[in-house]
């Protein structure tokens, strides 16, 4: 009965939804507002006035850089949320004693060998994605995810102690907020040099500076994102 009601309700909701979506301008057609209003300027002028060959990078780090400033803050918020909810948990909340924890399962030699073999290559690839985000697909977020994956895989294979050395304890809190801090530094520089927060140089002669700032932000997002993801992984894995 309950299931039948749910289905009936879903159908009732779906009909107006489908009807309204069918009335939208045809998806993907070059004559629709998303393609005729703002995008042409991004596509035509992006590389000249925003500093990066990769137009996606132009939009997320320059034209709409403030959104990305907010998004990296969302990522940091998730870390703060995990720490605030999980750190210093009271005793008694733990799983019953005697249940084997995941770390008790030995890692296969093959997996261990392959990970060790690939680690340097993963690291190099992450740095490549980070530094070439303004030219080719990629950028800070992607490289941050790759770096974090590297740290997490290393944690599983060689143990947490050695892996933690990759994100040094003394500056870890700063690394975790590298992304919003980089935005802040670049943003305030823009405010003082060009009059607006997150303003990049727009004249042709100074384009190199815009590109350099895009790369700096990319590095900030990559390093910060990796530190946040790795820290979330470690915090959630804490048994104490």
């Amino acid at each position: 009965m309950k299931r039948a009601l749910t289905v009936a309700l879903l159908v009732v909701v779906a009909i107006p939804l489908l009807y309204a979506v069918a009335q939208l301008p045809q998806h993907g057609s070059p004559m629709t507002p998303p393609y005729t209003h703002i995008s042409p300027r991004y596509l035509e002028k992006g590389p000249e006035e925003a500093g990066a060959e990769n137009i996606v990078t132009d939009v997320i780090l320059n034209y709409r850089g403030f959104d990305t400033n907010g998004e990296v803050t969302v990522i940091f918020t998730s870390l703060a949320a995990v720490c605030a909810v999980l750190l210093g948990s009271r005793k008694g909340d733990e799983r019953p004693a005697g249940e084997p924890s995941s770390s008790a399962v030995p890692v296969s030699d093959v997996v261990s060998f392959v990970v060790r073999l690939l680690s340097p290559l993963i690291a190099i690839f992450a740095v490549y994605v980070m530094l070439f985000g303004h030219i080719s697909p990629g950028g800070g977020f992607q490289s941050g995810a790759i770096l974090a994956a590297l740290v997490i895989v290393t944690t599983v294979i060689v143990g947490r102690k050695q892996a933690e050395a990759l994100v040094p304890v003394r500056i870890r809190r700063l690394l975790q907020v590298a992304a919003p801090l980089t935005f802040f530094v670049v943003g305030v520089s823009g405010l003082f040099l060009f009059g607006d927060y997150l303003a990049y140089p727009k004249t042709e002669g100074q384009m190199w500076l815009a590109t350099a700032w895009l790369i700096v932000i990319g590095i900030g997002i990559g390093v910060g994102g990796a530190a946040v993801l790795a820290s979330i992984f470690w915090t959630m894995g804490d048994d104490s």
Partner: peptide, 13 residues
């Protein structure tokens, strides 16, 4: 208003 990055709306925020 304030235009972030100096991009006038609707191109910027």
């Amino acid at each position: 208003s304030a235009y972030l990055g100096g991009w006038e709306p609707p191109y910027g925020i």
